[in-house]
Design a protein around this nucleic acid. Sequence first.
DNA 1: ACCTGAACACCGTTCAAGT
DNA 2: ACCTGAACACCGTTCAAGT
Lengths: 227, 227
Amino acid sequence: MTDMTVPVSRNTRRSDALSRDRIVEAAVEVLDATGEAGLTVRALTAHLSTGRGAIYHHVVNKEELLAAAVDEIVGRATAAAGDDDDPGRAIRALALGIFDAIDAHPWVGTQLSREPRQPAVFRIWRSVGSQLQRLGVPAAAMAAAGSALVNYVLGAAAQYAAGARRATGDADRKAYLATLAAQWAQHDPDPIVQEAAARLDDHDDREQFLAGVEIFLTGITAVAARG
Amino acid sequence: MTDMTVPVSRNTRRSDALSRDRIVEAAVEVLDATGEAGLTVRALTAHLSTGRGAIYHHVVNKEELLAAAVDEIVGRATAAAGDDDDPGRAIRALALGIFDAIDAHPWVGTQLSREPRQPAVFRIWRSVGSQLQRLGVPAAAMAAAGSALVNYVLGAAAQYAAGARRATGDADRKAYLATLAAQWAQHDPDPIVQEAAARLDDHDDREQFLAGVEIFLTGITAVAARG
DNA sequence: ACCTGAACACCGTTCAAGT
DNA sequence: ACCTGAACACCGTTCAAGT
């Protein structure tokens, strides 16, 4: 069993005033160290060495806190990938940035698809929309194109997050996929499932995620051209 | 004289043995009536008029129970939409079947994207895979095509579920989308967001979901042809 | 074998009381 | 104003005890 305890803050500057930003930062640390289930108000107050009620002085409730933590990570990812001259490359970079953020912080993937009205989702919509516009997608097709890409990215995020949750790093992920493939193959005699399982066993899901983005880009270009 | 024997309970099914199927059926009823948060072991035992521990005689834990409830609904949806001669039409029907199932049972949408290793997700993979095969997607492209489509459907499922959770029926959903659009527009001055919000206000999300399926089908066909 | 329901080890959130 | 921590109203799960 791995030790799941969160290290107590290096130096108890209890005299610092608590703030929303400090609480969100602490939430990210607790989530990274112990996962979604590990973020309890009690764990958070222990990490900040304060009382439970103090949290509620700066944050409405746990849901809002989680949304803020997700937005923190997604904000970094979208900011890091926005400055490519070619909009197609910018979209691939944006998608990969989100993928890698979820690989590093699996709780982000799960939380992103739980609530469409959260800041982080607005942020993704905005980035996707601006790149699709630069790509030349006409206004009439924008809503369909944007939601197709956003839904794909969020769907993939949630699915891959389950793998990343159990296994971070390349080797671990390969092992996870092998197990998953075995489970599928055992669970279902259908030849298509068997085939998919066999391929799952030795593919790179980061590459597969990108292949999906490629399919979308090809589709949106063709649909926009004939629409 | 009237018969004075008071029936202990009109619900004589109490004497029926409890079974896994009966428990799953009851879980679906509780979920439909009170939503995800309403499915507690206590509520379920009340609905079945039994003790808490009895549940654990037939079901491993709450997570497995939820997965079984989701599979029940998704099973009906995939069965209803599998017999079209044209694989393209069959895929659209399959996607719409899942969309409508989530509209009627919003908790399905949220739960589907939470765990890739659940029976309902296998089921969707299987249906999608078999139709893509009939569509002529070569084996080498199958994993990418399948995961693109499945991830899109699951991502959309989760996003639309949030709308359906608050508003079932056409009029309510329109009202929800109008509120969401207003919230976006207020939250963000970016012209692209403003544009998206304006369109969100008067579109049909069922139609938009289908437009996304169309984009992916077009992309898959084009990529498979040149691959 | 199947079921019961009290007990256990947790939750998020509130609020009178302190500084 | 900001913080504390006991108290409240819940959870899912277990298990000795009953039939």
